[in-house]
Every structure is written in structure tokens, then in C-alpha cells.
Amino acid sequence: MLGMVYKVVEQLFAKKSTNYFPSKYILEDTADTLKKGTIHPPVGVKEGFRGRLEYNVESCTGCGLCSKVCPANAIELYPAVINDKKTKRIVIYLSRCTYCQECVNICPKNSIQITTHFFMADYNKYDASLVVGLEHRKKYELKEEGSPDVQKEGN
């Protein structure tokens, strides 16, 4: 029992450790935030943490294995034209992603990489920052009449 009282007293004098949400906005505007209080840096993550995915459009071959194993159907294949060749590329909707790393493990060309980046909170889940590969899609997507703009949909 005494041990717990000791802990309670210790907690009373501990530093506050909360920040404003979403924290990514704080980093842009440090001066104003500091007027309201202090910034507590986030608790670091260890190596091996599953965070934001990164996609390399150049090395991707469009095989579609990642979208096959993705448990959340967060990976969408779309027809693309790169170097005048018809092929396929992917976009990853991070709002649906479960961060299981299956796509990273299965990719034969290591085109998808996992990072330890975890500042992803946003008010809009289809924001450009939460759809990996969106800028490539705008550039390469094959826009043909009658072709479905969405190839794979979630169940």
C-alpha cells in the first residue's frame, strides 16, 4: 500500500506529457505553440516499429502481389502508362492500412518500404499525405474512355 502512495506523490510532480493534436501542425508553427506552453517531444520508437509506408514507383513492376495479400484492401492497382508502355502501379490508402508489413515482405523488387514515421494524424483521410503514390497516379494514370477508374474495391 505504501508503495502506491509513494507512486502517487511522484506522479503529482511529474512533468506534463501531452501535446496539441494533430502534432504535425505544431511543428510548422513552433513559435505560436510555445506561447501556449511547452512542446514535449514524442516518445521515440525503436527500430522495427511499423510506421508509414513508402513507395518507389520506378522499381515497381506492377505485379499486384501486394494488393493480393493486403488484409485491408488498402492497396489499389491502377492502369498506368510509363515510358509508353501499358503497365500497372499502386496507391496505398494509409487510412485503411493496418501496418502489418505483408506487402513489404512480399514485394519482389522491394518497392514498398516501411519507415518508423508515425505522425499521420489528419482531419481528412484522403489527404495527399495519407495516400502514398498519389502524385505518381496523377502523372502516370492511363485515362481511357470506359476504363474503370477503380480496379479493386474493398469488400
Binding site: 525503436k46 522495427g48 516499429f49 493496418t98 505483408e102 515482405n105
Partner: peptide, 21 residues
């Protein structure tokens, strides 16, 4: 657990026939 598996909960540690990490 986070250090061991990559996540605090929903570890994504298992696969059929073994473990992933």
C-alpha cells in the same frame, strides 16, 4: 511488445507455419 513485434497491440507477429520476426 512494441519493440519485439512492431506494434503495441495487433502484433502482426504470426504467420502460418511460424512467426514473422
Amino acid at each position: 511488445l512494441e519493440e519485439l513485434t512492431g506494434n503495441r497491440i495487433n502484433y502482426a507477429m504470426l504467420t502460418i507455419g511460424g512467426v514473422r520476426r
